[in-house]
């Protein structure tokens, strides 16, 4: 399953729920309620508001735990011990990637920095979707861990605007099958 599709579905559902709430109320807005109905609907509104708060709170706690309990960014000041290491330097407007061939099936540690301005090191799978990224920043080295599942030609595209030739600042990484075939 493509991760972006899951995110897209969640967002469409979330926005859809917001839209349904608005459409429902807008449809009712033109129909004035009498005093009794107003009092009743005010009470219902307070109860619903409490429920909305409770549901969002549960989502907040559960979602935060689910997305943070295994922190998605590797420690930056420790030895990561990945079986493959790739050094990446971005500069206006090219990438220096050493080595530029890695194996699928085992983790690669990308050590990403910049020789001049801020760049964005984004890896695009052959299907055109981003699979991982980090910033390439002057004076800092960002360590990114990623395990390629499928062999193929992956594109590295600069994702942080860096001047005139930002768009064509791209290159490729070859991902070969385990064992180098």
């Amino acid at each position: 399953m493509i991760f972006q599709n899951v995110v897209w579905t969640l967002v469409l559902v979330g926005m859809g729920l917001v839209a349904v709430g608005f459409i429902y109320v807008v449809a009712q807005a033109g129909k004035p309620a009498d005093e009794v109905a107003t009092r009743k609907s005010t009470h219902t509104a307070h109860v619903l508001q409490a429920w909305l708060f409770a549901v969002l709170l549960v989502g907040f706690v559960a979602g935060s735990w689910a997305t943070l309990h295994r922190f998605p960014i590797p420690p930056q000041h420790a030895e990561l011990g990945a079986p493959q290491v790739v050094e990446v330097v971005g500069r206006q407007w090219s990438w220096q990637i050493t080595p530029d061939t890695v194996q699928a099936g085992s983790t690669v540690e990308f050590r990403v920095t910049s020789a001049d301005v801020n760049h964005g090191f984004a890896i695009y799978a052959p299907d055109g979707r981003i699979v991982a990224q980090t910033q390439a920043m002057p004076g800092f080295t960002n360590k990114l861990l990623y395990a390629f599942r499928q062999p193929g030609t992956y594109t590295v595209q600069c994702l942080e605007y860096c001047g005139l030739a930002h768009a064509p600042m791209r290159t490729t990484i070859q991902v070969v099958a385990p064992g180098g075939k």
Binding site: V18, G21, F22, V25, V26, Q28, A29, G30, K31, P32, A33, A37, T38, S41, T42, A45, Q49, L52, F53, L56, F60, G63, S64
Partner: peptide, 25 residues
């Protein structure tokens, strides 16, 4: 994530409660 609470629970919900069955033109 937390910033969503005031918007959903108070501002949007409050605005909708205000216009609900208000007879607004």
């Amino acid at each position: 994530w937390g910033a969503g609470f005031p918007v959903f629970v108070v501002t949007a919900y409050g605005a909708l409660s205000n216009i609900n069955r208000s007879g607004m033109r």
